[in-house]
C-alpha cells in the first residue's frame, strides 16, 4: 500500500454500532411498551393516561434511558446516511458530509434532551 490515511472513524463507528443495538433491540421494545402495553393497561381515561405517562418519563432513570436510546439511534441513522451518500458518489464531500449528518444527529439529540429535561 503506497499511502495510508489516518482516521477517527472508530469513534463514529462505535456510536453507529451502539446505536444499531438501540435501534434494533430497545427502540421496538420501547415503542411496544409505551405505545401499546402501558396505554392498554391504564384504562380508557386519556387524561389520566397522559399524566401517568409524563410521571413515568420524568423519572430520571427513564429520562436517561430515553435520551441514550434517542442519542445513539440518531447517530446510527446519521452514520448510515453518510455512508449511503458516499456510495452515491459524494465521497469527495468528506468533512462537509460529516458535519451535515452528525450535526443533524447531534441537533436532534440535543432537542430530545431539552424536551426530556423540561417535561
Amino acid at each position: 500500500m503506497s499511502h495510508l490515511t489516518k482516521t477517527n472513524e472508530a469513534f463514529w463507528w462505535s456510536l453507529f454500532s451502539a446505536g444499531g443495538v438501540m435501534a434494533a433491540l430497545f427502540l421496538p421494545v420501547m415503542i411496544f411498551v409505551t405505545g401499546f402495553v402501558l396505554p392498554f393497561m391504564m384504562g380508557e381515561d386519556v387524561e389520566s393516561q397522559q399524566d401517568r405517562m409524563v410521571s413515568l418519563v420524568t423519572f430520571w432513570p427513564v429520562r436517561l434511558a430515553l435520551f441514550g436510546i434517542i442519542f445513539l439511534s440518531s447517530f446510527h441513522c446519521a452514520h448510515r446516511i453518510r455512508h449511503v451518500l458516499m456510495d452515491f458518489g459524494l465521497r469527495w464531500a468528506g468533512v462537509a458530509l460529516m458535519i451535515c449528518c452528525y450535526g443533524a444527529a447531534a441537533g436532534g439529540a440535543v432537542a430530545a434532551g431539552l424536551i426530556l429535561v423540561r417535561l
Binding site: M1, H3, L4, T5, K6, T7, E9, A10, W13, H83, D87
Partner: peptide, 14 residues
C-alpha cells in the same frame, strides 16, 4: 493495526 485502522483499511467496508 495501523493499516487495518486506516481509512483504506476496515473502514472502507460498509
Amino acid at each position: 493495526q495501523d493499516i487495518l485502522g486506516a481509512e483504506e483499511g476496515v473502514w472502507g467496508c460498509a
